[in-house]
Simulated scan of single mutants.
Amino acid sequence: MQPGDIETELGLPIPGRILEEAEWARTAVKRLPEPGPLDWAAIFGRQAPLVLDLGCGNGRFTLGSALARPELNHFAIDVLPVVIRYATRRANQRGLHNVRFAVKDAQTFLRSYVGDAAAAEMHLYHPQPFHDPREAHRRVVTPAFVGDVHRGLAPGGLFVVQTDNPDYWHYMTKILPYFFVFEEHEGVWPDAPAGRSRREIVARQRGLHIFRGVGTRRDDLDHAEALELAASLPEPRFRTRGPWIELDRWEERNR
């Protein structure tokens, strides 16, 4: 790819253009420090509202958001090193100094590295539903995880979620309103009508319905109450079914 080029993926452009190498950024956090709340001002070299992308894949949402909102800092994680390499390269080539990427699972990252009221927004797009009941314990969206999202958001902060799995969505819509003023989002996202994530694009091309929602942090719920609430709510032990199982297998083969 040459400076000025626009990359495409699945027939759709990836946000931003490739810049001259002298304008590239350095967005990789190659090693996280010992557990403890991260110093965001030190990481980004400035104070700015923080957006967290929890399971960013190859970075499509973070790239688009960082380009459209340069006044915000964006920190994105994924458990898969290979997709973080793609995301980092793309952000570097677009000169996105307001972006950082790291390899880490979302549960550990929130629990161990995100301080209280640290983020203005958190985004979670298409968490793996783990169809095998023996792997249900690996599902990201649990009451404890949602409690950590609530703790890590600033007052009035937003939690944006999306999935193509109706069983997972049913569980989310039962759990999230305890911690957030939650509203389902009908239709596409205005900022990314073709899709905010690679998974969304693939799912839509295969005719699957996309479930979207935005939660605004319930500021009347303090941390102790959130912990007690999380301990009382059911874990995500639902059984998944339907044609998206084949899509998950396709995604695994074509990352």
Rank of each mutant, 00 (worst) to 15 (best):
K30R: 06
R218L: 02
H123L: 15
A154N: 06
E186W: 02
A203I: 01
H97K: 12
I77K: 09
W189N: 06
L110D: 02
L50R: 10
R100K: 15
A203R: 00
L10P: 08
T62S: 11
R90F: 01
G207Q: 03
V188M: 08
T216F: 05
L110W: 04
R218T: 02
G55I: 00
A230V: 12
D222Y: 05
P133R: 11
S112V: 04
P243S: 13
E21T: 13
G213V: 03
A136P: 10
K104Y: 05
E186D: 11
N92R: 04
F75L: 15
A102K: 00
L10V: 07
D78F: 04
A28S: 06
R253L: 13
R198A: 04
H97E: 15
S232V: 07
E235V: 09
F61K: 02
M172V: 13
R218N: 04
G59S: 05
E21S: 13
T27S: 10
R204K: 15
G4I: 06
I84W: 10
Q128Y: 06
L158E: 12
V181N: 04
E7T: 11
L72R: 15
E9D: 02
R237L: 14
N98A: 08
V214A: 02
A22L: 05
W244H: 12
W244G: 02
A68S: 14
E252S: 08
V141F: 03
W244D: 14
R31S: 14
G36F: 10
F211I: 04
F44Y: 13
R241G: 02
A203Q: 03
E186M: 04
P33S: 07
A91K: 00
R241C: 05
T88E: 12
G147S: 13
P133Q: 08
R217H: 11
V51Q: 08
G11H: 12
Q162D: 12
A76H: 09
A25N: 07
V214T: 12
D116G: 01
D219E: 13
W189E: 13
H126W: 11
I210E: 08
Y113D: 03
V214E: 07
V140W: 07
R100G: 07
R139S: 05
A25W: 06
Y125E: 01
V140H: 08
R255G: 11
E184T: 14
E183C: 07
Y178W: 09
E23V: 00
G95N: 09
Y171S: 05
G152Q: 02
N92E: 14
R237A: 09
L80D: 05
G152H: 01
D222A: 07
A102Y: 03
Y178T: 01
R239W: 06
W40K: 09
R218P: 00
R60D: 07
T88S: 11
T88P: 06
G157Y: 09
G147H: 03
P3Y: 13
R138T: 08
A106G: 14
P166T: 09
A117E: 15
V79C: 03
A91W: 08
N98V: 09
R199P: 01
Q93D: 15
G156C: 07
V83P: 01
N73V: 02
L229M: 15
V99M: 09
F130P: 15
G59N: 05
Q47K: 15
R196K: 14
I210H: 03
